[in-house]
Nucleic acid binder design. Sequence first.
DNA 1: GCGATGTTTCGGCCGCGGCCGAAGCATCCC
DNA 2: GGGATGCTTCGGCCGCGGCCGAAACATCGC
Lengths: 237, 237
Amino acid sequence: MTNIASLAGVAALIGDPARAAILVTLMDGRALTAGELATAAGVTAPTASGHLGRLLDTGLLALERQGRHRYYRIASASVAALIESMMSLSGELSAAAGRVKPVWTGPRDQALRRARLCYDHLAGEVAVAIADGIVARGQLDFGPDGGVITERGRNLLAELGVDWGSGRSAIPRPAAFCLPCLDWSERRLHVGGLIGRAMYDGFARRGWVRRCKVGRTVSITSLGASELNRHFGVAST
Amino acid sequence: MTNIASLAGVAALIGDPARAAILVTLMDGRALTAGELATAAGVTAPTASGHLGRLLDTGLLALERQGRHRYYRIASASVAALIESMMSLSGELSAAAGRVKPVWTGPRDQALRRARLCYDHLAGEVAVAIADGIVARGQLDFGPDGGVITERGRNLLAELGVDWGSGRSAIPRPAAFCLPCLDWSERRLHVGGLIGRAMYDGFARRGWVRRCKVGRTVSITSLGASELNRHFGVAST
DNA sequence: GCGATGTTTCGGCCGCGGCCGAAGCATCCC
DNA sequence: GGGATGCTTCGGCCGCGGCCGAAACATCGC
């Protein structure tokens, strides 16, 4: 029964519009100050502070204090993955109920749908296409443990300059290593976890992708478009 | 913004203790009457009726009316998968917060942890071990689309008498076909979707597993133990 | 130290929503 | 038809919790 209580507790926490707005705002993996989050959620600082406190001690958010600022961020990749998949389902449900017309028409949404950050790794069409390519080429297998990089895959990643903690000799197994993450807009899996993060970092370092100043959207540079196509078979548009 | 609203809406729906109890009760895939659910949630019939109505028209539950009974069930495998993974995360969080002592000691919980139903397919240690075995033997690959049965896998399933809709000639691709499902107690993936369902049905038909009269727990028969070990390498305990 | 800025705590208001009992439908059985 | 059973609708109570303004606390820059 206590399971039910904790389930309901976490769900209720996400279930308030202001808190949901805070969580979604933080889905780009950045750490924002309490004030910024208050603005994003459309509430005053005291209200936001209360919400942040609750999110914090339930473990959904983590805190880094820096001088007089307090930076809040999503606590872990698991939390981010849960929110991404809840957005996926809730979007589907409200579309089915006809409550929400497919909002997917504006140019900004198009870009978001194309490529965005999911906490610390890529999501969207591009991310799913990369996952497609990497699996099809036998460089990565998803499995019950979340995913394993094959020998071929490790060579590729090394060649790309993706650092995924090469200290390990054996193939790492923890689920967080290569977390399959249900893509909110695509409703298919993309690669999260340490591998997902390392790949995004590598892409960013090479100038293939560039995050927008605000929001989760990520743009693919022209170099990135051709390189992603070359290495993973990602179609240009 | 409307995304946030629908996210919060679904979460708030799950976030009430009575509704959460209803949903968890239905996680065994059975369809129960309003009265039974009221009892399970510990509320009166009118209260339950209100909750059921809301769960219904948000699309989390589905309704089958039969005479003067109205049978409610989880609306889809996606909903079940979401709840299973929310239970997984919330359990982890409350354990981390020290709010809930690891409840995992009682014999009933042991059994639940070992094997249970997740909507319409197996979950628990046994299910994860089966997924392990089936992937290790190259009979199934998880991928961005959720999973594909290889030629070898199809032969095995046919041999086991598992009917997974053999009408299709090509390898089916919809995500619901072989949905990776985050196991609540194991925090690793097991096989859901049509394949997961077909496998469970096959096992049940052959007398390898038997569901308990009440609750989600599934017991493995002694025949089942040896057969699951032989075919999938599932360890006996 | 002192004011400026960022954040949390406190107190109080208010409304949403969960809860129940009673009454109203619907369906079945005899 | 009439009575039993299952479920929902209605009306009203009540408390939790979201919200804000004011004040307290913390930190920085000077």
